[in-house]
Design a protein around this nucleic acid. Structure first.
Length: 412
DNA sequence: TCTGGGGTCCTGAGCCCA
DNA sequence: TCTGTGGGCTCAGGACCC
Protein backbone atom coordinates (compact mmCIF):
# COMPACT_ATOMS: atom_id res chain seq x y z
CA UNK A 1 0.00 0.00 0.00
CA UNK A 2 1.31 3.42 -0.88
CA UNK A 3 1.74 6.06 1.77
CA UNK A 4 -0.93 8.17 0.13
CA UNK A 5 -3.60 5.56 0.73
CA UNK A 6 -3.06 5.94 4.45
CA UNK A 7 -3.82 9.62 4.56
CA UNK A 8 -7.01 11.09 5.90
CA UNK A 9 -10.08 10.64 3.79
CA UNK A 10 -12.26 13.08 1.94
CA UNK A 11 -14.61 15.26 3.94
CA UNK A 12 -12.53 14.86 7.08
CA UNK A 13 -12.83 18.58 7.81
CA UNK A 14 -16.52 18.20 8.50
CA UNK A 15 -18.17 20.29 5.79
CA UNK A 16 -20.02 17.26 4.48
CA UNK A 17 -19.42 14.81 1.70
CA UNK A 18 -22.14 15.64 -0.82
CA UNK A 19 -19.98 16.53 -3.79
CA UNK A 20 -22.84 16.63 -6.31
CA UNK A 21 -22.11 19.43 -8.77
CA UNK A 22 -18.66 20.03 -7.26
CA UNK A 23 -16.81 19.46 -10.51
CA UNK A 24 -14.09 22.09 -10.06
CA UNK A 25 -10.88 20.98 -8.36
CA UNK A 26 -8.06 23.26 -7.27
CA UNK A 27 -4.84 21.33 -6.75
CA UNK A 28 -1.97 23.06 -4.96
CA UNK A 29 1.42 21.50 -4.19
CA UNK A 30 2.47 21.89 -0.55
CA UNK A 31 5.55 24.15 -0.11
CA UNK A 32 6.42 23.23 -3.69
CA UNK A 33 10.02 24.42 -4.18
CA UNK A 34 11.06 23.23 -0.74
CA UNK A 35 9.35 19.86 -1.27
CA UNK A 36 11.16 19.36 -4.58
CA UNK A 37 14.49 20.06 -2.86
CA UNK A 38 13.71 17.43 -0.23
CA UNK A 39 13.26 14.77 -2.93
CA UNK A 40 17.00 14.82 -3.64
CA UNK A 41 18.01 15.69 -0.06
CA UNK A 42 15.84 13.45 2.14
CA UNK A 43 18.20 14.00 5.08
CA UNK A 44 16.62 17.49 5.40
CA UNK A 45 13.12 16.13 6.03
CA UNK A 46 11.68 17.39 9.32
CA UNK A 47 14.09 20.35 9.39
CA UNK A 48 13.47 24.05 8.72
CA UNK A 49 14.46 24.63 5.08
CA UNK A 50 14.19 27.91 3.16
CA UNK A 51 14.48 28.21 -0.61
CA UNK A 52 15.49 31.69 -1.72
CA UNK A 53 18.07 33.86 -3.46
CA UNK A 54 20.93 35.49 -1.66
CA UNK A 55 21.65 39.20 -1.29
CA UNK A 56 18.46 41.13 -1.98
CA UNK A 57 16.29 38.09 -2.61
CA UNK A 58 13.12 36.97 -0.91
CA UNK A 59 11.88 33.62 0.37
CA UNK A 60 10.42 31.59 -2.50
CA UNK A 61 9.31 28.64 -0.38
CA UNK A 62 9.84 27.23 3.09
CA UNK A 63 9.10 23.91 4.75
CA UNK A 64 6.37 23.85 7.38
CA UNK A 65 9.09 23.55 10.06
CA UNK A 66 10.52 26.90 8.87
CA UNK A 67 7.03 28.40 8.66
CA UNK A 68 6.45 27.46 12.30
CA UNK A 69 9.42 29.72 13.12
CA UNK A 70 7.75 32.68 11.39
CA UNK A 71 9.18 32.40 7.88
CA UNK A 72 6.80 32.93 4.98
CA UNK A 73 7.10 33.29 1.23
CA UNK A 74 7.99 36.75 -0.14
CA UNK A 75 9.72 37.62 3.14
CA UNK A 76 13.12 39.29 2.57
CA UNK A 77 15.88 36.70 2.98
CA UNK A 78 17.79 38.91 5.40
CA UNK A 79 14.77 38.91 7.70
CA UNK A 80 14.14 35.19 7.25
CA UNK A 81 17.71 34.47 8.34
CA UNK A 82 17.17 36.54 11.47
CA UNK A 83 13.84 34.90 12.27
CA UNK A 84 15.15 31.37 11.69
CA UNK A 85 18.94 31.46 12.12
CA UNK A 86 19.20 27.66 12.21
CA UNK A 87 17.23 27.11 9.00
CA UNK A 88 19.00 25.54 6.03
CA UNK A 89 19.01 27.92 3.07
CA UNK A 90 18.98 26.51 -0.47
CA UNK A 91 19.45 28.45 -3.73
CA UNK A 92 16.50 27.80 -6.06
CA UNK A 93 16.94 25.40 -9.00
CA UNK A 94 14.18 26.49 -11.34
CA UNK A 95 14.80 23.92 -14.06
CA UNK A 96 14.18 21.14 -11.52
CA UNK A 97 10.90 22.74 -10.39
CA UNK A 98 9.84 23.04 -14.03
CA UNK A 99 10.55 19.33 -14.57
CA UNK A 100 8.48 18.21 -11.59
CA UNK A 101 5.73 20.66 -12.56
CA UNK A 102 5.61 19.23 -16.09
CA UNK A 103 5.17 15.74 -14.62
CA UNK A 104 2.33 16.91 -12.38
CA UNK A 105 0.58 18.78 -15.21
CA UNK A 106 0.86 15.70 -17.45
CA UNK A 107 -0.80 13.69 -14.70
CA UNK A 108 -3.63 16.25 -14.51
CA UNK A 109 -4.08 16.06 -18.28
CA UNK A 110 -4.46 12.29 -18.06
CA UNK A 111 -7.46 12.93 -15.76
CA UNK A 112 -9.17 15.66 -17.85
CA UNK A 113 -8.25 17.89 -20.80
CA UNK A 114 -9.75 20.86 -18.91
CA UNK A 115 -6.67 21.86 -16.92
CA UNK A 116 -5.85 25.53 -16.28
CA UNK A 117 -2.38 25.92 -14.75
CA UNK A 118 -2.04 29.02 -12.54
CA UNK A 119 1.66 28.66 -11.87
CA UNK A 120 4.23 25.85 -11.64
CA UNK A 121 2.60 24.42 -8.54
CA UNK A 122 -1.17 24.81 -8.88
CA UNK A 123 -3.98 24.31 -11.34
CA UNK A 124 -7.74 24.24 -11.72
CA UNK A 125 -9.31 21.08 -13.15
CA UNK A 126 -12.86 20.72 -14.46
CA UNK A 127 -13.61 17.01 -13.96
CA UNK A 128 -17.25 17.03 -15.13
CA UNK A 129 -16.30 14.93 -18.17
CA UNK A 130 -14.36 12.37 -16.11
CA UNK A 131 -17.05 11.39 -13.59
CA UNK A 132 -18.33 8.31 -15.45
CA UNK A 133 -14.80 7.01 -16.03
CA UNK A 134 -13.19 7.81 -12.67
CA UNK A 135 -15.97 8.25 -10.12
CA UNK A 136 -17.10 11.16 -7.95
CA UNK A 137 -15.16 14.44 -7.72
CA UNK A 138 -13.96 13.40 -4.26
CA UNK A 139 -12.73 10.05 -5.58
CA UNK A 140 -10.91 11.85 -8.41
CA UNK A 141 -9.34 14.27 -5.92
CA UNK A 142 -8.06 11.36 -3.82
CA UNK A 143 -6.77 9.64 -6.94
CA UNK A 144 -4.84 12.78 -7.90
CA UNK A 145 -3.35 13.13 -4.40
CA UNK A 146 -2.26 9.49 -4.40
CA UNK A 147 -0.76 9.65 -7.88
CA UNK A 148 1.09 12.93 -7.26
CA UNK A 149 2.74 11.39 -4.21
CA UNK A 150 3.45 8.03 -5.84
CA UNK A 151 4.90 9.55 -9.03
CA UNK A 152 6.64 12.69 -7.73
CA UNK A 153 7.13 12.02 -3.97
CA UNK A 154 5.58 15.36 -3.00
CA UNK A 155 2.25 16.07 -1.33
CA UNK A 156 -0.54 18.31 -2.51
CA UNK A 157 -3.82 19.69 -1.22
CA UNK A 158 -7.08 19.69 -3.14
CA UNK A 159 -10.21 21.82 -2.89
CA UNK A 160 -13.41 20.41 -4.40
CA UNK A 161 -16.27 22.85 -5.03
CA UNK A 162 -18.86 24.10 -7.52
CA UNK A 163 -16.71 27.14 -8.56
CA UNK A 164 -13.07 28.06 -9.02
CA UNK A 165 -13.02 30.61 -6.23
CA UNK A 166 -14.46 28.25 -3.62
CA UNK A 167 -12.22 25.38 -4.75
CA UNK A 168 -9.20 27.64 -4.34
CA UNK A 169 -10.23 28.67 -0.83
CA UNK A 170 -10.93 25.04 0.04
CA UNK A 171 -7.46 23.85 -0.99
CA UNK A 172 -5.93 26.63 1.12
CA UNK A 173 -7.95 25.51 4.14
CA UNK A 174 -7.00 21.87 3.48
CA UNK A 175 -3.23 22.54 3.63
CA UNK A 176 -0.97 20.77 4.15
CA UNK A 177 -1.56 17.38 2.57
CA UNK A 178 -5.36 17.53 2.77
CA UNK A 179 -8.61 17.53 0.86
CA UNK A 180 -11.69 19.64 1.48
CA UNK A 181 -15.08 19.36 -0.22
CA UNK A 182 -17.40 22.37 -0.04
CA UNK A 183 -20.88 21.18 -1.07
CA UNK A 184 -23.02 23.59 -3.08
CA UNK A 185 -25.42 24.15 -0.18
CA UNK A 186 -22.57 24.94 2.25
CA UNK A 187 -20.89 27.66 0.21
CA UNK A 188 -22.17 30.67 2.16
CA UNK A 189 -21.73 29.07 5.59
CA UNK A 190 -18.12 28.24 4.52
CA UNK A 191 -17.45 31.70 3.13
CA UNK A 192 -19.09 34.19 5.45
CA UNK A 193 -16.98 33.66 8.62
CA UNK A 194 -13.71 34.10 6.66
CA UNK A 195 -11.78 37.41 6.90
CA UNK A 196 -12.17 39.83 3.96
CA UNK A 197 -8.55 39.18 2.95
CA UNK A 198 -9.61 35.67 1.92
CA UNK A 199 -11.42 37.17 -1.07
CA UNK A 200 -9.63 37.03 -4.43
CA UNK A 201 -8.42 40.58 -5.13
CA UNK A 202 -8.25 41.81 -1.55
CA UNK A 203 -4.64 42.57 -0.67
CA UNK A 204 -3.17 44.78 2.01
CA UNK A 205 -4.52 48.11 0.69
CA UNK A 206 -8.05 46.95 -0.03
CA UNK A 207 -8.24 45.16 3.30
CA UNK A 208 -7.31 48.41 5.09
CA UNK A 209 -10.01 50.22 3.15
CA UNK A 210 -12.67 47.63 3.95
CA UNK A 211 -11.76 47.37 7.63
CA UNK A 212 -11.92 51.17 7.91
CA UNK A 213 -15.57 50.83 6.81
CA UNK A 214 -16.14 48.24 9.52
CA UNK A 215 -16.14 45.31 7.06
CA UNK A 216 -14.09 42.50 8.57
CA UNK A 217 -15.59 39.25 7.28
CA UNK A 218 -16.82 37.99 3.94
CA UNK A 219 -20.30 37.95 5.47
CA UNK A 220 -19.97 41.69 6.17
CA UNK A 221 -19.17 42.26 2.47
CA UNK A 222 -22.11 40.11 1.40
CA UNK A 223 -24.54 42.17 3.48
CA UNK A 224 -23.22 45.55 2.33
CA UNK A 225 -25.09 47.24 -0.56
CA UNK A 226 -23.08 46.81 -3.75
CA UNK A 227 -23.23 50.59 -4.41
CA UNK A 228 -21.43 51.21 -1.11
CA UNK A 229 -18.67 48.79 -2.12
CA UNK A 230 -18.36 50.40 -5.56
CA UNK A 231 -17.99 53.86 -3.98
CA UNK A 232 -15.30 52.51 -1.64
CA UNK A 233 -13.13 50.45 -3.99
CA UNK A 234 -14.29 51.16 -7.55
CA UNK A 235 -16.78 49.76 -10.03
CA UNK A 236 -15.13 46.51 -11.06
CA UNK A 237 -13.68 45.52 -7.70
CA UNK A 238 -16.83 46.42 -5.76
CA UNK A 239 -19.09 44.37 -8.00
CA UNK A 240 -16.65 41.44 -8.06
CA UNK A 241 -16.20 41.29 -4.28
CA UNK A 242 -19.96 41.38 -3.75
CA UNK A 243 -20.44 38.49 -6.18
CA UNK A 244 -17.61 36.45 -4.64
CA UNK A 245 -18.98 37.05 -1.14
CA UNK A 246 -22.16 35.25 -2.22
CA UNK A 247 -20.17 32.49 -3.93
CA UNK A 248 -21.06 33.74 -7.42
CA UNK A 249 -18.16 32.97 -9.77
CA UNK A 250 -19.02 32.17 -13.40
CA UNK A 251 -15.44 31.73 -14.64
CA UNK A 252 -14.81 28.53 -16.59
CA UNK A 253 -11.65 26.44 -16.44
CA UNK A 254 -9.74 27.60 -19.52
CA UNK A 255 -6.85 25.46 -20.76
CA UNK A 256 -4.06 27.03 -22.85
CA UNK A 257 -4.93 30.66 -22.10
CA UNK A 258 -2.68 32.86 -24.26
CA UNK A 259 -0.19 35.23 -22.59
CA UNK A 260 -1.02 38.93 -22.82
CA UNK A 261 2.50 40.20 -22.19
CA UNK A 262 6.04 38.88 -21.84
CA UNK A 263 8.73 40.67 -19.86
CA UNK A 264 11.91 40.40 -17.87
CA UNK A 265 13.33 42.51 -15.09
CA UNK A 266 16.45 42.55 -13.01
CA UNK A 267 17.18 43.79 -9.51
CA UNK A 268 20.86 44.68 -9.22
CA UNK A 269 23.02 43.42 -6.38
CA UNK A 270 23.68 47.09 -5.58
CA UNK A 271 22.08 50.34 -6.75
CA UNK A 272 23.46 51.58 -10.09
CA UNK A 273 23.96 55.18 -11.26
CA UNK A 274 25.90 54.45 -14.47
CA UNK A 275 23.76 55.07 -17.61
CA UNK A 276 26.09 52.94 -19.77
CA UNK A 277 25.49 49.97 -17.48
CA UNK A 278 21.71 50.59 -17.60
CA UNK A 279 21.77 50.74 -21.43
CA UNK A 280 23.58 47.39 -21.56
CA UNK A 281 21.05 45.94 -19.16
CA UNK A 282 18.17 47.20 -21.31
CA UNK A 283 19.80 45.55 -24.35
CA UNK A 284 20.24 42.25 -22.52
CA UNK A 285 16.64 42.29 -21.24
CA UNK A 286 15.28 43.28 -24.67
CA UNK A 287 17.10 40.37 -26.32
CA UNK A 288 15.82 37.99 -23.65
CA UNK A 289 12.22 39.20 -24.05
CA UNK A 290 12.45 38.97 -27.86
CA UNK A 291 13.76 35.39 -27.70
CA UNK A 292 10.85 34.40 -25.44
CA UNK A 293 8.37 36.21 -27.69
CA UNK A 294 9.72 34.34 -30.75
CA UNK A 295 9.58 31.04 -28.85
CA UNK A 296 5.88 31.70 -28.21
CA UNK A 297 5.41 32.51 -31.92
CA UNK A 298 3.82 35.88 -31.18
CA UNK A 299 4.56 39.56 -31.82
CA UNK A 300 4.06 42.50 -29.48
CA UNK A 301 3.05 46.11 -30.12
CA UNK A 302 3.76 48.01 -26.90
CA UNK A 303 7.19 48.29 -25.30
CA UNK A 304 7.10 49.08 -21.57
CA UNK A 305 10.11 49.86 -19.41
CA UNK A 306 10.06 49.82 -15.63
CA UNK A 307 12.54 51.64 -13.42
CA UNK A 308 12.73 51.24 -9.67
CA UNK A 309 14.84 53.73 -7.74
CA UNK A 310 16.88 53.15 -4.60
CA UNK A 311 13.99 54.41 -2.44
CA UNK A 312 11.75 51.78 -4.06
CA UNK A 313 9.56 54.27 -5.96
CA UNK A 314 8.76 52.72 -9.31
CA UNK A 315 7.83 54.30 -12.63
CA UNK A 316 6.98 52.86 -16.03
CA UNK A 317 7.00 54.34 -19.52
CA UNK A 318 5.58 52.81 -22.67
CA UNK A 319 5.32 53.33 -26.40
CA UNK A 320 3.10 51.59 -28.93
CA UNK A 321 4.77 50.72 -32.21
CA UNK A 322 3.15 51.17 -35.63
CA UNK A 323 3.72 47.45 -36.31
CA UNK A 324 4.16 44.60 -33.81
CA UNK A 325 7.64 43.12 -33.48
CA UNK A 326 9.64 40.22 -32.08
CA UNK A 327 13.07 41.72 -32.83
CA UNK A 328 15.28 42.40 -29.81
CA UNK A 329 17.12 45.28 -31.43
CA UNK A 330 13.85 47.11 -32.17
CA UNK A 331 12.61 46.57 -28.63
CA UNK A 332 15.93 47.81 -27.28
CA UNK A 333 15.90 50.99 -29.37
CA UNK A 334 12.46 51.93 -28.01
CA UNK A 335 13.39 50.90 -24.46
CA UNK A 336 16.51 53.01 -24.60
CA UNK A 337 14.65 56.04 -25.97
CA UNK A 338 12.05 55.72 -23.22
CA UNK A 339 14.81 55.49 -20.62
CA UNK A 340 16.81 58.42 -22.01
CA UNK A 341 13.65 60.56 -22.14
CA UNK A 342 13.46 60.29 -18.34
CA UNK A 343 16.48 62.62 -18.24
CA UNK A 344 17.90 61.01 -15.11
CA UNK A 345 21.07 62.57 -13.75
CA UNK A 346 23.03 59.92 -11.88
CA UNK A 347 19.88 58.62 -10.18
CA UNK A 348 20.49 55.48 -8.10
CA UNK A 349 18.58 52.66 -9.75
CA UNK A 350 17.67 49.38 -8.11
CA UNK A 351 15.84 47.60 -10.93
CA UNK A 352 15.09 47.89 -14.61
CA UNK A 353 12.61 45.84 -16.62
CA UNK A 354 11.47 45.49 -20.23
CA UNK A 355 8.05 44.13 -21.18
CA UNK A 356 6.26 43.63 -24.49
CA UNK A 357 2.47 43.95 -24.40
CA UNK A 358 -0.36 43.72 -26.92
CA UNK A 359 0.70 40.27 -28.08
CA UNK A 360 -0.76 38.90 -31.31
CA UNK A 361 -0.08 35.71 -33.26
CA UNK A 362 2.86 35.97 -35.66
CA UNK A 363 0.90 34.51 -38.61
CA UNK A 364 0.15 37.99 -39.88
CA UNK A 365 3.74 39.19 -39.77
CA UNK A 366 4.29 42.21 -42.02
CA UNK A 367 7.83 42.57 -43.36
CA UNK A 368 8.00 46.35 -43.46
CA UNK A 369 10.27 47.74 -46.11
CA UNK A 370 11.47 51.22 -45.32
CA UNK A 371 12.90 53.28 -48.16
CA UNK A 372 16.36 53.23 -46.63
CA UNK A 373 16.21 49.59 -45.59
CA UNK A 374 19.57 48.00 -46.12
CA UNK A 375 21.21 51.26 -47.18
CA UNK A 376 22.09 52.74 -43.78
CA UNK A 377 22.58 49.45 -41.99
CA UNK A 378 20.93 46.07 -41.58
CA UNK A 379 17.20 45.99 -42.38
CA UNK A 380 14.59 44.87 -39.85
CA UNK A 381 14.36 41.54 -41.68
CA UNK A 382 18.16 41.12 -41.53
CA UNK A 383 18.17 41.82 -37.79
CA UNK A 384 15.41 39.33 -37.20
CA UNK A 385 17.17 36.70 -39.27
CA UNK A 386 20.33 37.21 -37.21
CA UNK A 387 18.42 36.87 -33.93
CA UNK A 388 16.59 33.74 -35.12
CA UNK A 389 19.96 32.23 -36.08
CA UNK A 390 21.23 33.08 -32.59
CA UNK A 391 18.16 31.35 -31.09
CA UNK A 392 19.10 28.17 -32.97
CA UNK A 393 22.71 28.33 -31.80
CA UNK A 394 21.60 28.79 -28.19
CA UNK A 395 19.19 25.86 -28.48
CA UNK A 396 21.99 23.70 -29.77
CA UNK A 397 25.08 24.81 -27.88
CA UNK A 398 23.82 26.58 -24.76
CA UNK A 399 22.71 29.98 -23.60
CA UNK A 400 26.09 31.72 -23.53
CA UNK A 401 27.30 30.68 -26.96
CA UNK A 402 26.13 33.87 -28.70
CA UNK A 403 25.20 37.38 -27.58
CA UNK A 404 25.28 40.94 -28.96
CA UNK A 405 28.79 42.37 -29.33
CA UNK A 406 28.05 45.02 -26.68
CA UNK A 407 27.34 42.29 -24.16
CA UNK A 408 30.40 40.18 -24.87
CA UNK A 409 32.52 39.95 -21.75
CA UNK A 410 29.58 40.84 -19.49
CA UNK A 411 28.62 38.30 -16.85
CA UNK A 412 25.03 37.08 -17.26
C1' DT B 1 12.80 45.23 8.44
C1' DC B 2 13.60 45.90 3.61
C1' DT B 3 11.17 44.51 0.22
C1' DG B 4 12.23 39.06 -6.46
C1' DG B 5 10.29 38.11 -10.75
C1' DG B 6 6.63 37.21 -13.89
C1' DG B 7 2.38 38.25 -14.68
C1' DT B 8 -2.98 40.32 -14.82
C1' DC B 9 -6.45 43.69 -14.22
C1' DC B 10 -8.30 48.19 -13.14
C1' DT B 11 -8.54 53.23 -13.04
C1' DG B 12 -8.06 57.82 -14.53
C1' DA B 13 -6.21 61.29 -17.52
C1' DG B 14 -5.47 62.96 -22.03
C1' DC B 15 -6.12 62.85 -26.83
C1' DC B 16 -8.40 62.00 -31.23
C1' DC B 17 -12.35 61.49 -33.96
C1' DA B 18 -17.03 60.90 -35.54
C1' DT C 1 -18.49 76.51 -38.66
C1' DC C 2 -18.70 75.82 -33.89
C1' DT C 3 -19.68 73.13 -29.78
C1' DG C 4 -20.75 69.22 -27.04
C1' DT C 5 -20.47 64.39 -26.28
C1' DG C 6 -19.20 59.76 -26.10
C1' DG C 7 -16.25 55.94 -27.52
C1' DG C 8 -11.78 54.09 -28.38
C1' DC C 9 -6.99 54.21 -27.75
C1' DT C 10 -2.71 55.22 -25.30
C1' DC C 11 -0.18 55.97 -21.31
C1' DA C 12 1.03 55.80 -16.37
C1' DG C 13 0.45 54.00 -12.09
C1' DG C 14 -1.47 51.09 -8.45
C1' DA C 15 -2.92 46.79 -6.54
C1' DC C 16 -2.90 42.15 -6.58
C1' DC C 17 -1.62 37.12 -7.41
C1' DC C 18 1.68 33.12 -7.17
Amino acid sequence: MSRSQLRRVAGATGLGSDDTGCTILHVDMDAFYASVELITRPELRGKPVIVGGGGRGVVLSATYEARAMGVHSAMPMSRARRVAPDAIVIEPSHHRYAEVSAGVMALFNSITPLVEPLSLDEAFLDVSGALRRLGSPTAIAELIRARVYDEQRITCSVGVAPTKFIAKLASTQAKPDGLLVVPADSVTSFLHPLPVAALWGVGERTEERLVSLGLRTVGDIAHTPVDTLIRAIGQASGQRLHDLAWGRDERDVIPDAAEKSIGNEETFARDIDDPVFIHRELLRLSQKVAARVRAHEVLGRTVVIKVRFADFTTISRSRTLPEPTDVGQEIYEVARELYDALGLQRARIRLVGVRLEGLVGDAGRVEQLALDDGLTGPSAADRRAAEVAADRLRDRFGHDVVRPARLVGEPE
